[in-house]
Design a protein around this nucleic acid. Sequence first.
DNA 1: CGCGACGTTGATTTGCCTCAACGATTGTGG
DNA 2: CCACAATCGTTGAGGCAAATCAACGTCGCG
Lengths: 194, 194
Amino acid sequence: MGSSDSIIPEFFKEISCSALELQCIQSTIARLDLEKGDILLSEGNKVEHQYYVSSGCLRTYFLDTSGKEYTIQFAVKDWWISDYTAFFNSTTAIMNIECLRDATIYKVSKKDMDALFIEVSQLETFFRKKMEGAFSSFQKRILEGLSLSAKERYISFISAYPNIEQSVKNYHIASYLGITTESLSRIRKEITQK
Amino acid sequence: MGSSDSIIPEFFKEISCSALELQCIQSTIARLDLEKGDILLSEGNKVEHQYYVSSGCLRTYFLDTSGKEYTIQFAVKDWWISDYTAFFNSTTAIMNIECLRDATIYKVSKKDMDALFIEVSQLETFFRKKMEGAFSSFQKRILEGLSLSAKERYISFISAYPNIEQSVKNYHIASYLGITTESLSRIRKEITQK
DNA sequence: CGCGACGTTGATTTGCCTCAACGATTGTGG
DNA sequence: CCACAATCGTTGAGGCAAATCAACGTCGCG
């Protein structure tokens, strides 16, 4: 589909730069269309890209030796996703990324990104601010993990991701909250009964 | 003490910039000497600064309505500290910052910082990379909170902060790990008995 | 010394997990 | 389009890790 090279991902609407700069940025970005169930990244692979979600839903999760899953992040429209620990350090992934609902995403390599930051300084500012926002929400999640009960965390979760329950399974949510599917089921029951 | 204006905080050793740029940076930085027990920042205050720790030890903590404390971050030499959610959004603090061991720190305002980023682009890169590192360690902490038992989290903590137990109380550590002082006491006993 | 802050220990409770069985929903091939 | 299987969600019984509540050592400091 020739359409991909004429598309400018929505995230650039926030950056003001020249047509030349835009063209330069655009040449480093590739579109990907994913289907539910696709694995975008697997544990052990080199992590050279991060991904912008234009539509659909994905998640990053960690798989421990006993086979349990822990969801680190959900990504819906306008979020970025990767195994960031590996991405920043250019090492191999310890996380997996899975498509939960058919998605259109854009991938950008770290190498291209670093080069672009030098040429287009607004881009570095843009990503620094994105980073700051993500940092804040991680901090909030740590605090909630320390201070709230499972039920309170669930309530906080559904208000932070209002429509996500249409895209993800309950056991995805449970693995994000750090509880079992059985506990989540009981919490949901308790809430709807009131 | 006139020494403060001739001191260049250690963190600048990593940034290569001209003498003029250095002078420009330096003029925006103020040194503070804190004593154990000092409160650097209180809930409700405007957060206009972040702080570089040159020596000593501080912590950021949240106080809930029932009076319980949750430690979000410890900061020792070469760490940055603030209520970052409030700092990034230029709002009022929900956290408190307390000096746990006599400290020398350097404060930088957000306004000065943003201005400097435009003039000295290496500085923005430097802070973006710092941010990335902090982001990774927050992610690690979230994962550990989801996947590890209290005992395992404690073991991970003391290996990540090897000498911090000299500077902080056990109940600070407990409030960082999300457990009670009693539980921490029992865990410590269990470990030393082996 | 004596007081207050900190840490430890014990008894009991509780929130969530584990294990097991059973509905409900989704997807697939005949 | 239905039949059936697989996946997912719910419910119950029992167990365990960590919390709570209470009491008692211990240390540092005015």
